[in-house]
Structures are given as structure tokens and as C-alpha cells.
């Protein structure tokens, strides 16, 4: 797996095989990476509304993503897809628009999800690696995760920014905060990636992830109670069970 150099990147961009659009300045393309700018949308955690990340609130995700007008009943809440759960999940993050010449404040210790200004399209034989630009990293700005961008990804890139410094950082759309480098994949294995379209493909703005998708079996629900539940009406100490579901007992 070799890293693309500036001339490789330019050739790919010229062919429109790789897309990073728009590039506002020639110097945005470095010796082996391309700088990415802060876009206009951010997701912030709304601390006043939620106490913690609750994986159970994400259980209805898959079905909701399949909602269509052809089957409107899929919208209706049922026992394990309560209005409350959905509402809690949606209220967790606040989406804000940040027009040019306005800013979003990243407080010390805080995490925000922001979009890049650029639209990115990665071909099937490349993988992207996103990191913070070193000049911003020296101010305490860190791009927490999501360092790998899969082959065949299309959309804005979500930057998960955290402030590791002691003082808040004002961030303005258009600032070059991150950089993306590209690694070539073995052309034989690249074919495997062709159909791999991740959950964030075609994103126009940052969004929260589906954290329990395909891991539902590990989340206790009324339908599938906790495996440690020992008896119909007794808990592990032999005491009578408090009426209600597992969540209310905790």
C-alpha cells in the first residue's frame, strides 16, 4: 500500500477519478496530502437534554432508515420503538448552520462533528486517511476518530473535532483544519470494495452514527431480556423483582 504523492493526486483529480471539490488554492495540495476546510454544518451534544449515551435509543435505527412512503405504517412507534427513545436520540445532538464569517466555538474537552467544505469521492482502489493539520494540532485541536475513509465513499467528510487544550477555539468555515492522504490498495483486492457503501455515504452534513447496527443481540430489551435475569419474579439475590422493565430497575 503506497501513499500517493502530489503528482499522483493531481493526475487522479484531473481524471476525476478522485474528487475533492472545490479546491480553493493550489497550495491546498501538499507533497502527499490535500488540505480540507471546515464546512458550514456542525453537530453539538446538547448536554441539557441527555444524561448519557444510551445504545438502546439506537435500536430502531435500521428499520427507520428503511421507511418509505409505500409503507407509512413503519413510522408508527411500537413497544420497542417508543416515541421517547426516538426523541431522546434526536435531542442528543443539536445541528447548527455556520455561515461564512460566523464561527462555532469548540470548548476545552468538547467534541463536535463538523462537515468539510469539500465534497469528496474516493475511487475503489484508494483509501483516505484524515488527520488534523499540524499547525492546528499545536493549538490543541484533534481529529478524534474516523481517520479512514473507505474506497468508493462519496460525500462530505465528517470531522470529529475535539479540543485537547485548556482554552476554547473559535472555528470559522473555510479554515483549513484537516488533511487527507491517500493509500493505494492492491488492484486485486480493490474489487472487493466496489460494493462496500458505508452508512455515511452520500452525506451532505455530519450525522450521528448507528452505533448498535448488527450488535442488537447485545442490548437487553423487554423482548430479549438480560441473560442474567434468573427467574420470572425474582432477581439474582432472590428478592422479588420490581415491576417494570430492566431499565426502570436500574
Amino acid at each position: 500500500m503506497s501513499v500517493l504523492t502530489k503528482s499522483d493526486i493531481c493526475k487522479r483529480l484531473a481524471k476525476r477519478d478522485l474528487v475533492i471539490s472545490p479546491i480553493l488554492h493550489p497550495k491546498q495540495i501538499g507533497p502527499a496530502s490535500v488540505d480540507l476546510r471546515l464546512g458550514n454544518t456542525a453537530l453539538l451534544v446538547r448536554g441539557s437534554d441527555v444524561s448519557h449515551v444510551d445504545p438502546k435509543a439506537y435500536l430502531g435505527d435500521k428499520r427507520r432508515s428503511d421507511i418509505s412512503l409505500e409503507d407509512p405504517t413503519a413510522h408508527l412507534p411500537d413497544e420497542d420503538d417508543s416515541f421517547d427513545m426516538e426523541s431522546r436520540r434526536r435531542r442528543k445532538m443539536e445541528r447548527i448552520s455556520v455561515p461564512f464569517h460566523t464561527h462555532v466555538m469548540l470548548h476545552a474537552g468538547g467534541v463536535i462533528l463538523v462537515s468539510t467544505f469539500e465534497w469528496v469521492k474516493i475511487p475503489k482502489d484508494l483509501v483516505g486517511t484524515v488527520t488534523a493539520r499540524s499547525s492546528w494540532a499545536r493549538e490543541g485541536l484533534s481529529i478524534a476518530t474516523a481517520t479512514f475513509i473507505n474506497p468508493c465513499y462519496t460525500g462530505i467528510i465528517t470531522l470529529e473535532l475535539s479540543n485537547l487544550g485548556q482554552i476554547p477555539i473559535e472555528l470559522y468555515p473555510g479554515l483549513r483544519l484537516a488533511q487527507i492522504a491517500f493509500h493505494e490498495l492492491d488492484p486485486k483486492t480493490a474489487e472487493d470494495c466496489k460494493d462496500a457503501r458505508g452508512q455515511f455515504n452520500d452525506s451532505f452534513e455530519p450525522r450521528a452514527g448507528r452505533i448498535v447496527e448488527r450488535d442488537e443481540a447485545f442490548i437487553p430489551t423487554q423482548e430479549h431480556p438480560d441473560v442474567f435475569e434468573v427467574a420470572e419474579d425474582e432477581d439474582q439475590d432472590g428478592d422479588l423483582k420490581v415491576p417494570g422493565n430492566r431499565e426502570s430497575r436500574l
Binding site: 502530489k6 503528482s7 493531481c10 493526475k11 483529480l13 484531473a14 476525476r16 471539490s21 472545490p22 479546491i23 493550489p26 465534497w119
Partner: peptide, 12 residues
């Protein structure tokens, strides 16, 4: 957003 930005020789 606009016309093609990168030329074949890598210039913008």
C-alpha cells in the same frame, strides 16, 4: 460548483 478545476499537468 463549477467547471473542472485541475488540468492534466496538475495545475489549477
Amino acid at each position: 460548483v463549477g467547471p473542472k478545476q485541475i488540468n492534466g499537468d496538475g495545475s489549477l
